[in-house]
Amino acid sequence: MKDKKMKNKKIRSRSAKQVSFIANLMCIILLILVLVPVLHVAALAFSRGTAQLAGKVYLWPVDFQIEGLKMVMTQTGFLRSLLNSIYITVVGVVISLVVQILFAYPLSRPKLKGRNFLTAVLAIAMLFSGGLVPTYMVINGLGLVNTFWAVILPGAMSTFNMLLIRNYFEGLPEGVIESAYIDGAGDLQALFKVVLPMSTPIISTVSLLTAISYWNSYFGPSIYLTEGDKMTLQVFIRNLMADTQTITEQLERTEETIGLLSVTTIQSVVTVLAAVPMIAIYPLCQRFLKQGITIGSEKG
């Protein structure tokens, strides 16, 4: 008996070592694969254009410059489009979360009546789209063209994210929720007092996914927000990418400034600027993920 336990422990520790070794190795490989190109882009953003063209830049800036960063940030549209994107993302995340959580909770209740109807509605909404023209006409008819609602509202009820939340809710210990009802809680109370506190991991994840999709969205903003002061960062960035020449020409002012930036270095600057905000919020999301473990275990 004792022998067997010892043996088990041995196997266990050996397998744990194997797994941990593989996990660490995997991380190292991933880090190299990902970081080498990423650092290359970051290095390009701060290298002199001629150094880039000459192929001298690898993982560290050559002939360091921050002129590119300055030029992009002082383009009249940059700051405004950044603020617009932040506004759309923040408001969008809040609205989406409310709508999706409210939808996911009833759907996760095991005895809900009318599930088939809801399923059909979701399936159809997910699979078919009316297309650009009629959607534009609906948004235009509501007077939303050239307002931020035109890009916030249509994406707020993402069926995919809602289903992620529902999946998570369904995985929660039903006993805890049941007992809340028995204690006399209403549906809202059960959702807000019992279910949500156990759901920080999924809420932070879906917030992140939603934030990313609002932040990265291009099609909607490009069609519905044609007025310059409504431009979002992604639209601004792609415009700039398509017209880097304006910036390189701007540098043809003196012998010294010619060659300071190249098409590629400007594109790199823009890439770095667009990615930084989203990279910055990731650790925040991770913190909530960790929090989820403890809360989940306490209640579960």
Binding site: V98, V99, L107, I124, G130, P134, P154, M157, D187
Partner: peptide
């Protein structure tokens, strides 16, 4: 309340998904 909770989502789907289907 469970059914009231579905309303915002359903309204959004109706307006921005189903209404444009005629197109």
């Amino acid at each position: 309340t469970l059914y009231l909770m579905l309303i915002p989502g359903l309204v959004l789907l109706a307006i921005f998904e189903f209404l444009p289907y005629y197109g």
